[in-house]
Amino acid sequence: SAVVMEEGSPGEVPVLVEPPGLEDVEAALGMDRRTDAYSRSSSVSSQEEKSLHAEELVGRGIPIERVVSSEGGRPSVDLSFQPSQPLSKSSSSPELQTLQDILGDPGDKADVGRLSPEVKARSQSGTLDGESAAWSASGEDSRGQPEGPLPSSSPRSPSGLRPRGYTISDSAPSRRGKRVERDALKSRATASNAEKVPGINPSFVFLQLYHSPFFGDESNKPILLPNESQSFERSVQLLDQIPSYDTHKIAVLYVGEGQSNSELAILSNEHGSYRYTEFLTGLGRLIELKDCQPDKVYLGGLDVCGEDGQFTYCWHDDIMQAVFHIATLMPTKDVDKHRCDKKRHLGNDFVSIVYNDSGEDFKLGTIKGQFNFVHVIVTPLDYECNLVSLQCRKDMEGLVDTSVAKIVSDRNLPFVARQMALHANMASQVHHSRSNPTDIYPSKWIARLRHIKRLRQRICEEAAYSNPSLPLVHPPSHSKAPAQTPAEPTPGYEVGQRKRLISSVEDFTEFV
């Protein structure tokens, strides 16, 4: 048969007729292969192709491409040299491709048809291009793949890379869960390890502090508590009631339409708007009261037996805890006409967050109470924005700035309102402590230090009264110190430094 060459192609190359033996071998191979691939376009007849790359030819070592076609129900084999250009295909004639002069020997084609199974398996396991790669995943090629499931790999992101949580363990979102698992493993320790309690022994800490320079003076030496005195035992138990972190309780009120001037209507609300609910979820963490331990979680007086509701929101960081007394989460009882059960919590909070959804101005004093010092007013606006402002009593104007209003988005509203309420509550605590000038409020841990110092002074006084020969370590507060001759004046800087060093040991009130 003659071949018409394309323009620009090399000279004529004689194409030899395939021997009958080659056709029989390739026909047997075509019957084993699956003929249901995917359909081509209507211009080209339905056909199945599979590209198999052999590394070497037997005796020649030339890479070839073998295409199996099922045109007219008769499979045909096409061998081509890759750099050459194939002729145009037609549905009426068999596929013809040019070969190099080196394939002119018909014996070479017979060798190609009689490829060993080793070469076929190696060509099938190679990388296939384009559409033949999808075909190689079918059941027909499963014989050339190794048996057994593939090893499982770690989760992959859409980009093909490992997620960040699997790369950096410290930033993994499941870090707290692993800590819980470690605690569970520790709890399952053997009885021999049960006595080993991690941490620092208080006796060891005391020993280090006792021999430090801070205890060089007799006034700073630790003293032993009497065991037989019940009054001192009660004082030590009272110390446990003062937490070592700051605590805040903040009221949250929802004002519906037409309720801006009605205290009873505001306290009777059992739910609010959708934006109000989203605002609550951002204030803190939802907790169930019956599962809380009052000595570990500050509840601000809420009952854990269901008297004040089942849930509330709280927030904490390293040095403070805040609980929100939310009116809509507290039960509304029919027998309580004046809502006294709610007001006994909300009316005693220094700061209230008022979500004013009424469309009218909310005035300070609508919720009557002796300790309502500051109101954080949240007014929802259009386009997911809110107006946040402050209202306070006249005696609080020096501590709280009420002249600045803020426009905040719904997303950042819980954070801004919480921070403003916490700052206002700190100012309210300082303002409330002014009624007792001898006990200015600095912080909870300073209050613990003052309680310890008062307890020490009482013990020293009782020891001096029981044994008059012992001198008083600290003179009583009601006694007057003996007159001392004025010492020589020293520079102001040295006096300030000495006073600062003494105050650092005794108390921190002056620095606050």
Rank of each mutant, 00 (worst) to 15 (best):
V376K: 01
V495W: 12
G369F: 07
G306K: 09
S477V: 15
P491G: 12
E461W: 14
E461S: 06
N467E: 14
V416W: 05
D341E: 09
H451P: 06
D401E: 06
A421S: 05
V473D: 15
I377H: 05
K343Y: 09
L286P: 12
V351I: 02
I242G: 05
G398S: 12
D401N: 07
H248L: 08
I407S: 03
L267C: 03
L225C: 15
D240M: 03
Y274K: 08
Y465A: 14
A322N: 03
L399V: 11
I452A: 07
V430Y: 15
Q241A: 11
P476A: 12
D334T: 14
L289E: 15
D401M: 04
T281A: 12
D308L: 09
Q419G: 04
E488D: 12
E263I: 02
D349A: 12
T277Y: 12
F508P: 14
L449P: 15
P294K: 13
S477I: 08
A417E: 01
R454E: 15
K480A: 15
L302M: 11
Q370P: 15
L286R: 08
A322K: 02
H271I: 08
D334L: 09
Q370T: 15
Y355G: 00
G272L: 01
I266E: 03
N372L: 07
R411K: 14
S477M: 09
L299S: 15
V378A: 03
M396A: 05
M420N: 02
D410W: 00
H325Y: 06
V255T: 01
S389D: 05
H478M: 14
R500N: 15
L449W: 10
H325I: 05
S389N: 07
L253H: 03
S219K: 13
L224W: 10
H451A: 11
S273E: 01
P476I: 14
N269H: 02
D291C: 06
S443H: 06
H474M: 11
K337L: 14
V400P: 03
G492K: 08
V495C: 14
D308P: 09
T281C: 13
R498W: 06
S268G: 08
H478V: 15
R434A: 13
H474E: 15
I250D: 00
N372D: 09
P486L: 11
V388D: 00
A424R: 00
P226A: 15
G496Y: 05
R434C: 11
R498G: 12
D382W: 01
Y254Q: 01
L399T: 05
I502G: 14
Q484F: 08
S389Q: 15
L239S: 08
T312I: 11
K290S: 10
V236G: 07
D295T: 11
M420T: 06
F232Y: 11
D382M: 05
R418I: 04
R339H: 15
P491N: 11
N412Q: 05
S479I: 08
K342T: 05
G301N: 13
I440C: 10
K333E: 10
R434N: 11
E270K: 06
V505W: 07
N269K: 02
P475N: 14
E263H: 03
S469G: 14
Q237K: 08
P226W: 12
V430W: 15
S235H: 15
L399C: 14
R498T: 13
H478T: 15
I440N: 09
L381M: 10
G347Y: 15
G272K: 02
L390Q: 05
M420V: 05
Y493T: 13
P482Y: 09
N269V: 01
E288V: 09
D341I: 09
V408E: 01
S433C: 09
K221V: 15
S469N: 15
L238W: 08
E233H: 10
S219N: 14
D395V: 06
K221A: 15
E488H: 13
F324T: 02
D410T: 01
K394Q: 11
L422A: 02
G398D: 13
Q259I: 02
R285K: 14
T438I: 07
Y245S: 06
V255S: 01
L267Q: 03
Y383G: 07
L390W: 03
T438L: 07
A447S: 09
E263V: 01
K296C: 05
K368C: 11
F415R: 02
K290R: 11
D295A: 07
E228F: 07
C460M: 14
I326S: 04
Q484D: 12
E494D: 11
V430K: 01
S273R: 02
L302Q: 15
S352V: 15
R448W: 07
V255Q: 01
D382V: 02
R411S: 09
V297H: 14
R275Q: 00
K480N: 14
R448G: 13
L387W: 04
E506Q: 06
G359C: 04
T485Y: 10
V388W: 01
N348I: 03
A421D: 00
A427W: 06
N227R: 09
D318F: 04
R418F: 05
L399N: 04
I326D: 04
A265V: 02
P222D: 14
T328I: 00
E506D: 11
D246T: 08
N269C: 02
A463C: 14
A464Q: 07
T277D: 08
L267H: 04
P475H: 14
S477F: 07
A487M: 14
C314Q: 12
N356E: 00
I250H: 00
L364K: 12
F232W: 14
